[in-house]
Design a protein around this nucleic acid. Sequence first.
DNA 1: AACACGGGGAC
DNA 2: GTCCCAGTGTT
Length: 346
Amino acid sequence: MNFSDTLLRWYRSNKRDLPWRDSKDPYKIWISEIILQQTRVDQGIPYYFNLIRQFPNIQVLSEASEQSILNVWKGLGYYSRARNIHYTAKYVVQQLNGKFPCTYKSLMDLKGIGPYTAAAIASICYNESVPAIDGNVSRVISRYYGIEDAVSTSVFKRKIQLISEQLISQNAPGDYNQAVMEYGAVICKPLAPKCEICPFYDSCFAFQNNKITILPKKKKQIKKKMRFFNYFHLVLPNNMIVIKKRLKEDIWKNLWELPLVECDKLLDYNELKTISFLNGLHQETVVLKGRKDFIHQLSHQTLNIRIFTINLSNSDFFSEKEYTFVNQDDNSYPFPRIIENFLKTY
DNA sequence: AACACGGGGAC
DNA sequence: GTCCCAGTGTT
């Protein structure tokens, strides 16, 4: 039996029971694939249930507010995905009469859908024979066929694409695509792959050449940017706090946070008094209650975060600006994890 | 081609 | 600490 048939057989008797499996509803597959972009299955599953419950179909999603979608998405990261499914839902409902595109080519026109997701939806929902190539597929193929180019190069991508086009099942492209991914996630893992139970070990290039640990050749480590966020946790007499929406093209776009002074280092209270809005406030309206520091690691940034808790007896300064007042426990505003956790434990 | 974009799980 | 995840959009 050849590679694809062995893989398909393995898949059909070993596949995990995931919530979107056995569905061919393009809406559900679409949502699941967006969630799974750069996201582990285990992490995505609860979000899938929440999204489908709150937005059971594309019509409902298209009529929802972006904030309500972000509020379900909060904590999952890569928030452009949430903004894009909202944009695309509106586009499909309003411009395409609610009919979801059903070919690889037309799926590629949708915002948030790239080559991988278009192929996944086209193959799973519409039986189109196009390979869905993700990190799992790249790893499995590069190891088995000995593709030694760096994963980031176009040469690598072209080779994986070509091999995958040869391998994909014409009868069951959706199952084939999911089989390779599942195999990469469960057996041919990045670290400590289970070569001892792998049926392909005798013909696997990497295993035979002792290159399992170096294939696929990884991209070089990116250097993280260091950033310093000085936050103000401003508590009013009625126990409301001051928050603000992040609107810039930056991390956490369209999520909410506390009033922020970002600069090249963490500051102490006296330094902040001279450069921030604190300068314009009367001494007696502001009482410093506490200070907490955090280090929040993102993939591309290290966030040094300092949060000052301050009792504020007069909110006039904030009422005329782009600030909002909410209860501490109001959960209708999507906060980044670090802010959400801080407010929850405060 | 390189970079920005989150958060968390596994080691 | 490091790695990297069912990738996409932008420059």
